[in-house]
Amino acid sequence: MSPQRHTHLDALAMALMMGLCALWGLNQVAAKVANAGISPVLQAGLRSAGSVLLLLVWCRFRGVRLFDADGSLAAGLAAGAMFSAEFALIYWGLEFTPASRAVVFLYTAPFVVALCLHWLVPAERLNRMQSLGLIAAFGGILLAFGDNLSLPDGRQMIGDAMLLAAAVMWGGTTVLIRTSRLSSVRPSKTLFYQLGVSALVLPPASLLLGETGIIGQPSTLVWVSLAGQIVVVAFASYLTWFWLISRYPATRLSAFSFLTPLFGMMFGAWLLGERITWGLGGAMALVAAGIWLVNRK
Protein backbone atom coordinates (compact mmCIF):
# COMPACT_ATOMS: atom_id res chain seq x y z
CA MET A 1 0.00 0.00 0.00
CA SER A 2 1.47 3.37 -1.07
CA PRO A 3 1.90 5.98 1.67
CA GLN A 4 -0.31 9.05 1.70
CA ARG A 5 1.38 11.95 -0.10
CA HIS A 6 1.14 15.59 1.01
CA THR A 7 1.27 18.53 -1.39
CA HIS A 8 2.94 20.85 1.16
CA LEU A 9 5.24 20.49 4.14
CA ASP A 10 3.46 20.54 7.49
CA ALA A 11 4.96 21.48 10.86
CA LEU A 12 6.20 17.92 11.45
CA ALA A 13 8.06 17.75 8.14
CA MET A 14 9.67 21.16 8.66
CA ALA A 15 10.73 20.34 12.21
CA LEU A 16 12.21 17.01 11.09
CA MET A 17 14.11 18.67 8.24
CA MET A 18 15.55 21.30 10.57
CA GLY A 19 16.70 18.53 12.90
CA LEU A 20 18.16 16.50 10.03
CA CYS A 21 20.10 19.46 8.66
CA ALA A 22 21.54 20.14 12.12
CA LEU A 23 22.55 16.47 12.44
CA TRP A 24 24.13 16.43 8.99
CA GLY A 25 26.00 19.62 9.82
CA LEU A 26 27.27 18.03 13.04
CA ASN A 27 28.23 14.96 11.01
CA GLN A 28 30.70 17.12 9.07
CA VAL A 29 32.51 17.71 12.36
CA ALA A 30 32.31 14.02 13.35
CA ALA A 31 33.77 12.99 9.99
CA LYS A 32 36.68 15.43 10.41
CA VAL A 33 37.39 14.00 13.85
CA ALA A 34 37.27 10.42 12.53
CA ASN A 35 39.53 11.36 9.60
CA ALA A 36 42.40 11.49 12.10
CA GLY A 37 42.29 7.70 12.39
CA ILE A 38 40.31 6.38 9.39
CA SER A 39 40.63 7.44 5.76
CA PRO A 40 37.48 9.21 4.44
CA VAL A 41 36.16 6.74 1.82
CA LEU A 42 36.89 3.75 4.04
CA GLN A 43 35.17 5.62 6.87
CA ALA A 44 32.05 6.02 4.70
CA GLY A 45 32.17 2.32 3.84
CA LEU A 46 32.51 1.26 7.47
CA ARG A 47 29.67 3.61 8.37
CA SER A 48 27.42 1.95 5.79
CA ALA A 49 28.45 -1.55 6.87
CA GLY A 50 27.70 -0.85 10.53
CA SER A 51 24.41 0.83 9.70
CA VAL A 52 23.19 -1.97 7.44
CA LEU A 53 23.72 -4.47 10.27
CA LEU A 54 21.76 -2.19 12.59
CA LEU A 55 19.04 -1.87 9.95
CA LEU A 56 18.75 -5.65 9.61
CA VAL A 57 18.22 -5.96 13.37
CA TRP A 58 15.66 -3.13 13.28
CA CYS A 59 13.71 -4.72 10.40
CA ARG A 60 13.79 -8.11 12.10
CA PHE A 61 12.37 -6.58 15.26
CA ARG A 62 9.71 -4.65 13.30
CA GLY A 63 8.77 -7.57 11.07
CA VAL A 64 9.77 -5.71 7.89
CA ARG A 65 10.49 -8.00 4.93
CA LEU A 66 13.50 -6.71 3.01
CA PHE A 67 13.92 -9.51 0.50
CA ASP A 68 10.39 -9.93 -0.88
CA ALA A 69 10.07 -9.43 -4.64
CA ASP A 70 8.28 -6.12 -5.16
CA GLY A 71 9.75 -4.77 -8.40
CA SER A 72 12.16 -2.38 -6.67
CA LEU A 73 15.43 -4.29 -7.17
CA ALA A 74 16.71 -2.51 -10.29
CA ALA A 75 15.89 0.97 -8.97
CA GLY A 76 17.30 0.05 -5.55
CA LEU A 77 20.63 -1.15 -6.93
CA ALA A 78 20.86 1.98 -9.09
CA ALA A 79 20.16 4.20 -6.09
CA GLY A 80 22.83 2.37 -4.08
CA ALA A 81 25.36 2.75 -6.89
CA MET A 82 24.64 6.48 -7.20
CA PHE A 83 24.89 6.91 -3.42
CA SER A 84 28.30 5.17 -3.46
CA ALA A 85 29.53 7.21 -6.42
CA GLU A 86 28.47 10.42 -4.67
CA PHE A 87 30.66 9.76 -1.64
CA ALA A 88 33.61 8.49 -3.68
CA LEU A 89 33.49 11.62 -5.87
CA ILE A 90 33.21 13.94 -2.85
CA TYR A 91 36.20 12.48 -1.03
CA TRP A 92 38.28 12.08 -4.18
CA GLY A 93 37.41 15.60 -5.31
CA LEU A 94 38.57 17.00 -1.97
CA GLU A 95 42.06 15.88 -2.92
CA PHE A 96 42.00 18.52 -5.66
CA THR A 97 39.93 21.40 -4.28
CA PRO A 98 39.43 22.92 -0.78
CA ALA A 99 36.40 21.81 1.25
CA SER A 100 35.07 25.37 1.55
CA ARG A 101 35.10 25.66 -2.25
CA ALA A 102 33.64 22.18 -2.70
CA VAL A 103 30.54 23.10 -0.67
CA VAL A 104 29.42 25.61 -3.31
CA PHE A 105 29.54 23.02 -6.09
CA LEU A 106 28.04 20.18 -4.03
CA TYR A 107 25.00 22.24 -3.03
CA THR A 108 23.86 22.62 -6.59
CA ALA A 109 22.13 19.27 -5.92
CA PRO A 110 18.73 20.84 -5.01
CA PHE A 111 18.66 22.40 -8.49
CA VAL A 112 19.13 18.92 -10.01
CA VAL A 113 16.11 17.75 -7.99
CA ALA A 114 14.01 20.79 -8.92
CA LEU A 115 14.80 20.68 -12.65
CA CYS A 116 14.28 16.93 -13.03
CA LEU A 117 11.09 16.74 -11.01
CA HIS A 118 9.71 19.80 -12.81
CA TRP A 119 9.52 17.67 -15.96
CA LEU A 120 8.89 14.26 -14.44
CA VAL A 121 6.38 14.97 -11.66
CA PRO A 122 3.88 17.79 -12.35
CA ALA A 123 2.95 17.99 -8.65
CA GLU A 124 6.56 18.93 -7.83
CA ARG A 125 6.79 21.91 -10.18
CA LEU A 126 7.94 25.21 -8.72
CA ASN A 127 6.48 28.55 -9.75
CA ARG A 128 8.61 31.64 -10.34
CA MET A 129 8.63 32.79 -6.71
CA GLN A 130 9.57 29.31 -5.51
CA SER A 131 12.36 29.13 -8.08
CA LEU A 132 13.56 32.51 -6.85
CA GLY A 133 13.55 31.08 -3.32
CA LEU A 134 15.82 28.23 -4.40
CA ILE A 135 18.20 30.75 -5.99
CA ALA A 136 18.12 32.91 -2.84
CA ALA A 137 18.98 29.91 -0.65
CA PHE A 138 21.91 29.06 -2.92
CA GLY A 139 22.92 32.72 -2.70
CA GLY A 140 23.25 32.17 1.04
CA ILE A 141 25.77 29.39 0.38
CA LEU A 142 27.71 31.71 -1.93
CA LEU A 143 27.72 34.44 0.72
CA ALA A 144 29.02 32.07 3.41
CA PHE A 145 31.61 30.25 1.31
CA GLY A 146 32.09 32.40 -1.77
CA ASP A 147 35.20 34.17 -0.47
CA ASN A 148 37.07 30.97 -1.35
CA LEU A 149 35.98 31.10 -5.00
CA SER A 150 38.41 32.27 -7.64
CA LEU A 151 39.37 31.26 -11.14
CA PRO A 152 40.41 27.62 -10.73
CA ASP A 153 43.79 26.20 -11.64
CA GLY A 154 44.07 22.84 -13.37
CA ARG A 155 43.79 20.74 -10.20
CA GLN A 156 40.88 22.74 -8.86
CA MET A 157 38.99 22.35 -12.14
CA ILE A 158 39.26 18.57 -11.73
CA GLY A 159 38.02 18.79 -8.16
CA ASP A 160 35.22 21.18 -9.07
CA ALA A 161 34.06 18.81 -11.81
CA MET A 162 34.06 15.90 -9.37
CA LEU A 163 31.98 17.84 -6.84
CA LEU A 164 29.50 18.84 -9.55
CA ALA A 165 29.25 15.18 -10.56
CA ALA A 166 28.68 14.28 -6.89
CA ALA A 167 25.88 16.86 -6.76
CA VAL A 168 24.28 15.24 -9.81
CA MET A 169 24.54 11.84 -8.09
CA TRP A 170 23.00 13.24 -4.90
CA GLY A 171 20.15 14.98 -6.67
CA GLY A 172 19.69 12.10 -9.08
CA THR A 173 19.32 9.64 -6.22
CA THR A 174 16.49 11.74 -4.76
CA VAL A 175 14.80 11.96 -8.17
CA LEU A 176 15.13 8.21 -8.72
CA ILE A 177 13.59 7.42 -5.34
CA ARG A 178 10.74 9.85 -5.97
CA THR A 179 9.91 8.62 -9.49
CA SER A 180 10.50 4.85 -9.27
CA ARG A 181 9.06 1.87 -7.44
CA LEU A 182 11.13 2.99 -4.44
CA SER A 183 8.58 5.73 -3.76
CA SER A 184 6.06 3.13 -2.60
CA VAL A 185 8.25 0.64 -0.72
CA ARG A 186 9.10 0.99 2.94
CA PRO A 187 11.77 3.62 3.72
CA SER A 188 13.80 0.92 5.49
CA LYS A 189 14.07 -1.04 2.23
CA THR A 190 15.20 2.04 0.30
CA LEU A 191 17.84 2.65 2.95
CA PHE A 192 18.86 -1.02 2.82
CA TYR A 193 19.66 -0.73 -0.89
CA GLN A 194 21.83 2.33 -0.37
CA LEU A 195 23.67 1.07 2.70
CA GLY A 196 24.13 -2.44 1.34
CA VAL A 197 25.57 -1.38 -2.01
CA SER A 198 27.82 1.31 -0.51
CA ALA A 199 29.11 -1.10 2.16
CA LEU A 200 30.26 -3.38 -0.67
CA VAL A 201 31.56 -0.68 -3.02
CA LEU A 202 33.28 1.94 -0.84
CA PRO A 203 35.98 -0.18 0.90
CA PRO A 204 37.38 -1.41 -2.46
CA ALA A 205 37.08 2.17 -3.77
CA SER A 206 39.22 3.26 -0.82
CA LEU A 207 41.95 0.86 -1.95
CA LEU A 208 41.71 2.02 -5.57
CA LEU A 209 42.06 5.64 -4.45
CA GLY A 210 45.21 4.75 -2.55
CA GLU A 211 43.92 5.65 0.90
CA THR A 212 45.90 4.66 3.98
CA GLY A 213 42.88 2.99 5.59
CA ILE A 214 43.22 2.67 9.35
CA ILE A 215 45.81 5.26 10.38
CA GLY A 216 48.01 4.13 13.27
CA GLN A 217 46.01 3.34 16.39
CA PRO A 218 42.80 5.41 16.23
CA SER A 219 41.85 7.10 19.47
CA THR A 220 38.68 6.43 21.43
CA LEU A 221 37.28 9.72 20.10
CA VAL A 222 37.74 8.49 16.51
CA TRP A 223 35.76 5.30 17.21
CA VAL A 224 33.08 7.22 19.10
CA SER A 225 32.73 9.60 16.13
CA LEU A 226 32.38 6.66 13.74
CA ALA A 227 29.82 4.98 16.03
CA GLY A 228 27.80 8.19 16.16
CA GLN A 229 27.77 8.36 12.37
CA ILE A 230 26.63 4.73 12.16
CA VAL A 231 23.77 4.98 14.64
CA VAL A 232 22.57 8.57 14.38
CA VAL A 233 23.40 9.63 10.82
CA ALA A 234 23.49 6.65 8.46
CA PHE A 235 20.74 4.74 10.28
CA ALA A 236 18.34 7.08 12.10
CA SER A 237 18.62 10.28 10.05
CA TYR A 238 18.68 8.60 6.61
CA LEU A 239 15.70 6.44 7.56
CA THR A 240 13.84 9.61 8.52
CA TRP A 241 14.87 11.29 5.26
CA PHE A 242 13.52 8.44 3.12
CA TRP A 243 10.32 8.45 5.14
CA LEU A 244 9.93 12.15 4.36
CA ILE A 245 10.61 11.68 0.63
CA SER A 246 7.92 9.02 0.45
CA ARG A 247 5.30 11.42 1.84
CA TYR A 248 6.24 15.02 1.01
CA PRO A 249 7.38 16.95 -2.12
CA ALA A 250 11.07 16.23 -2.61
CA THR A 251 11.80 19.66 -4.12
CA ARG A 252 10.44 21.47 -1.06
CA LEU A 253 12.35 19.15 1.27
CA SER A 254 15.59 19.64 -0.66
CA ALA A 255 15.44 23.40 -0.12
CA PHE A 256 16.16 22.78 3.57
CA SER A 257 19.47 21.07 2.71
CA PHE A 258 21.07 24.51 2.18
CA LEU A 259 21.05 24.81 5.98
CA THR A 260 23.40 21.84 6.40
CA PRO A 261 26.74 23.51 5.52
CA LEU A 262 25.80 26.54 7.63
CA PHE A 263 25.12 24.29 10.62
CA GLY A 264 28.41 22.56 9.82
CA MET A 265 30.22 25.90 9.90
CA MET A 266 28.70 26.78 13.27
CA PHE A 267 29.45 23.37 14.80
CA GLY A 268 33.00 23.53 13.40
CA ALA A 269 33.57 26.89 15.07
CA TRP A 270 32.05 25.70 18.35
CA LEU A 271 33.71 22.29 18.61
CA LEU A 272 36.87 22.59 16.52
CA GLY A 273 37.66 26.29 16.76
CA GLU A 274 37.33 26.79 13.00
CA ARG A 275 36.92 30.22 11.43
CA ILE A 276 33.44 31.60 10.72
CA THR A 277 33.18 33.81 7.64
CA TRP A 278 31.79 37.32 7.97
CA GLY A 279 28.76 36.49 5.83
CA LEU A 280 27.25 33.74 8.01
CA GLY A 281 24.45 35.94 9.42
CA GLY A 282 23.44 37.16 5.99
CA ALA A 283 23.73 33.63 4.63
CA MET A 284 21.33 32.30 7.27
CA ALA A 285 18.86 35.06 6.42
CA LEU A 286 19.05 34.32 2.68
CA VAL A 287 18.65 30.57 3.17
CA ALA A 288 15.71 31.11 5.55
CA ALA A 289 14.04 33.46 3.07
CA GLY A 290 14.64 31.00 0.26
CA ILE A 291 13.12 28.11 2.21
CA TRP A 292 10.09 30.26 3.02
CA LEU A 293 9.58 31.20 -0.63
CA VAL A 294 9.90 27.59 -1.79
CA ASN A 295 7.45 26.28 0.81
CA ARG A 296 4.88 29.05 1.10
CA LYS A 297 1.38 28.10 0.04
Rank of each mutant, 00 (worst) to 15 (best):
R5E: 10
H6V: 10
T7R: 13
H8L: 09
H8N: 12
L9K: 00
L12N: 12
M14S: 15
L16W: 08
M18K: 05
G25C: 10
A31H: 04
K32G: 06
K32Y: 11
V33K: 07
N35F: 15
I38D: 03
S39V: 07
P40M: 12
P40N: 08
Q43D: 10
Q43C: 11
R47A: 12
S48D: 05
S48W: 01
G50P: 00
L55W: 02
L55P: 00
L56P: 04
W58F: 14
C59A: 08
R65M: 14
D70L: 10
L73C: 09
A79F: 08
A81H: 06
M82D: 03
S84Q: 03
A85P: 09
F87N: 04
Y91K: 09
L94W: 09
T97F: 09
A99P: 06
Y107F: 13
V113E: 03
V113Y: 00
A114M: 04
L117F: 02
L120S: 03
L120M: 14
E124S: 12
R125S: 11
N127P: 00
R128E: 12
G133L: 01
G140S: 13
I141N: 04
L142R: 01
A144C: 13
G146K: 01
S150L: 09
P152A: 14
D153I: 05
R155W: 13
Q156F: 06
D160H: 14
A165L: 10
A165Q: 05
A166N: 05
A167R: 00
V168S: 04
G171F: 04
V175M: 03
R178P: 03
R178N: 05
R181C: 14
V185T: 15
R186P: 07
P187Q: 14
S188M: 06
K189I: 07
Y193T: 08
Q194W: 05
L195Q: 02
S198E: 10
A199G: 05
V201L: 09
P203Y: 02
L208P: 01
L209G: 08
G210W: 07
G213Q: 07
I214Q: 07
I215T: 04
G216K: 13
Q217F: 10
V222Y: 01
W223H: 01
A227W: 02
A227D: 10
G228C: 13
Q229M: 15
V231H: 01
A234W: 06
S237P: 12
Y238T: 00
F242G: 08
L244C: 08
A250W: 06
A255D: 05
A255K: 03
L259R: 05
L259V: 15
P261E: 12
P261C: 09
A269H: 04
A269N: 02
A269G: 13
W270M: 15
L271G: 12
L271D: 14
E274H: 13
R275Y: 14
R275M: 09
T277R: 05
T277Q: 07
L280M: 13
A283I: 05
V287N: 00
A289I: 04
A289T: 12
G290S: 09
G290Y: 00
L293N: 02
N295A: 07
